[in-house]
Design a protein around this nucleic acid. Sequence first.
DNA 1: TGCGAAATGAAACGATCGTTTGGTTATCCT
DNA 2: AGGATAACCAAACGATCGTTTCATTTCGCA
Lengths: 214, 214
Amino acid sequence: MPRPSRWNEIIEAAAEAFRTNGYAATSLEDIASAVGMWKGSLYHYIDSKEDLLFAVVRGPAEEILNQLRELSDTDLPPTEKIRRATRSHVQILNSNFVYASVYLQEIAGRRKLPEWTAMDREYLNLLESIVREGVDSGEFSAVTNPRVATLALIGSLNWLTHWYRPGGSLHADEIADQFCDLFLGGLITRKTKAPRSQTVTPLKTTKPRAKRTA
Amino acid sequence: MPRPSRWNEIIEAAAEAFRTNGYAATSLEDIASAVGMWKGSLYHYIDSKEDLLFAVVRGPAEEILNQLRELSDTDLPPTEKIRRATRSHVQILNSNFVYASVYLQEIAGRRKLPEWTAMDREYLNLLESIVREGVDSGEFSAVTNPRVATLALIGSLNWLTHWYRPGGSLHADEIADQFCDLFLGGLITRKTKAPRSQTVTPLKTTKPRAKRTA
DNA sequence: TGCGAAATGAAACGATCGTTTGGTTATCCT
DNA sequence: AGGATAACCAAACGATCGTTTCATTTCGCA
């Protein structure tokens, strides 16, 4: 029976523990016992506890940013860009749920390491640029500050880690579309319909996890 | 010179430390040295470290819920209820910024203590009821799942702790109105205007902090 | 003024944590 | 087969943490 790479087991155990108890409240013994080894043996794979945190978090953080970069390079109409960016964000949150939750709880906000804040800022700026495109083309209303609108959307998306669970009754794509309908069309009833998206041509699909050889 | 209550100093120092470093990563010595005393002396005011966390967090948590309870009892139109609830949420986040940030980072999500989850659920349900009122009256479109729309709004509001800072260039009320315009009217340009709010008759105003006598 | 309680100082304790060390077993390659 | 290296065991260390204990100072008030 070919056992999967031990490194993946360690990262998954670390991610699960970090998400439920938080990084600081998780001991290396928690992680070690979850994978069935002594805490000292973890140091055959890592140099410090923080290595585990960064390894957990790096994959989805880079993936979500890269997908938005690719999308920004297209010349789809802003409405469609917003819809695809939202779908991409939700899908990565869905398929990397534990890892992404750890990122949002432990990296975004607290630790001010320049590497991560630069990624956060670039993501925000790319999304805001899409909103600005829509305002400039007249497609979006100009009453709302583009940066505030962007931060509102990001907040809604990232708050998913507080209530969404993969495999629940609501599919990831449904939630993404609901968010889009809300942000694009608003709550209030209108006669002129907000354009709903048709069949989706996915930009790319990427796969769960990272690698490592000690 | 009449020194303010020592208990307030302790809570404020604890809140500031919890917010920047997180609860688990904050030591009692951090807090003690911030107020100029020995960590053991803190136990004249508390029974355990967790007491500090709950004391920091209880005030705004109860206040934000109570304000939404009062608002729900009125019979304002749903649009105006949403606007006032949003303003109230942002204002409490603004005037109790550090305390509320600690709540969102340390209580909501992690700790599953029934007391707090009950408050979270009630807040969510009250806000969702307002959205449902709007859908039932035809004021709001029925295309968006009310619960999803409510969670989207709450997510935008609570994400404020990640980027808003009291005293910054954007006033709290401006942000609240921007959020409302966005959630009610949507991004997409429309001919029929979303109703903007007039002068506000405040429901109540409450004051910063709690008390305690050891 | 003096007394009792509140407030703080100062030190210590036991537990736990991240990390190190040195040895033992398993696995892979030629 | 055998040697190198990866993988893991087992124990220990030093630091730090939350908490306790007891002594000392400060303060309100009769």
